[in-house]
């Protein structure tokens, strides 16, 4: 495999899976998945972090032993003093590469190499250039961007690596309010961690029963599963170097295998799509944003 080949990354787990499930998930990723970089950490809700924090050193060590690069991701919506303190602590602990998912982290990580996560808006060359001067070495681009914007950014990126979200339910919105709790008549402060009941988010349908979104605590995701397996060639031509898979409650090793195989030219994109559709049976695919359409659309 050539060293300049597109690299596969695994985004942080967005859902509130039980700690054991997460540990087993990463053990299998370490042993079996053709993934180059794994992002770890709680991105959605700080209330969930204590459940897995104590496992993180062990999981990170195992992934590194297996040859994966590990990046620690910050929370995406930082509000309380406690949450700010958590970001400050990550800035001081320089052992790992870190991903900034809020502007607070962009300030705290200034002057050292870091990744700009998909929850920080990078829509244009001006912003990209500023963040590169600030120390960013890689930028995960917003899922809203159409192909022509991705191409324009790739052209302007210089030494900054770019990463595009290519598989999984798409993060669409964040709120101070917890909708999982609200759906059960609870407040965020006394949420009883009801978000743990939905391993892939709670489907939200329209009044005429058309599936629309998936609720994940304070986060709203797409109902559809983004799938850019057929756009991998276009991404490579733009010189986008990193492709992100968001963990879903499916066989992610198999999903990673398909993406790797298509990237390496061993499997046709169309065939890859067919294999993926056998693994993802809970929702349809989408790739609308890439094609400049509504995000929910799927252009074949």
């Amino acid at each position: 495999m050539a060293t300049h080949a597109t690299k596969l990354t695994l985004g942080p787990i967005l859902f509130h899976w039980p700690a054991e499930r997460k540990r087993d998930f990463y053990a299998r990723i370490a042993d079996e998945a053709p993934i180059d970089t794994v992002y770890l950490g709680e991105v959605v809700c700080s209330k969930r972090a204590p459940f897995f924090d104590s496992w993180l050193p062990e999981v990170a060590a195992k992934l590194e032993r297996a040859g994966k690069k590990v990046v620690f991701s910050t929370l995406a919506l930082v509000m309380s003093e406690r949450e700010i303190e958590a970001v400050r602590a990550m800035a001081e602990d320089s052992g790992f590469l870190v991903e900034a998912n809020d502007i607070s982290a962009v300030r705290l990580f200034a002057g050292r190499p870091h990744v700009i996560g998909p929850f920080v808006n990078v829509y244009n060359e001006g912003t990209l250039r500023y963040l590169a001067r600030n120390g960013a070495t890689r930028v995960v681009l917003s899922n809203e961007l159409p192909a022509h914007s991705l191409a324009a950014l790739a052209e302007a990126a210089g030494n900054v690596e770019l990463e595009v979200q290519a598989f999984g339910r798409l993060p669409l919105a964040l709120s101070a309010r917890c909708y999982h709790a609200r759906s059960r008549g609870l407040h965020k402060d006394s949420c009883q961690y009801v978000c743990a009941d939905d391993l892939g988010g709670m489907p939200l349908k329209t009044l005429d029963e058309k599936p629309f979104f998936a609720v994940n605590g304070i986060q709203t995701l797409s109902y559809t599963v983004c799938n850019l397996v057929q756009e991998l060639g276009a991404l490579r031509d733009m010189t986008i170097g990193y492709v992100r898979l968001w963990p879903q409650a499916v066989d992610m090793v198999a999903v990673a295998d398909v993406f790797r195989s298509v990237l390496d030219g061993k499997t046709e994109a169309r065939e890859g799509e067919a294999i993926l559709s056998r693994h993802v049976d809970f929702a349809p695919f989408s790739n609308g944003y890439f094609h400049g359409r509504e995000g929910a659309a799927y252009a074949q």
Binding site: L172, S175, A296
Partner: peptide
């Protein structure tokens, strides 16, 4: 706005038109 402003893609997910752009 009940979502964090500037970080919401609900509308573009349904219409292709983004508040951000």
């Amino acid at each position: 706005c009940v979502m964090a402003e500037g970080r919401c893609a609900l509308s573009s997910y349904a219409t292709g038109q983004s508040p951000n752009v």
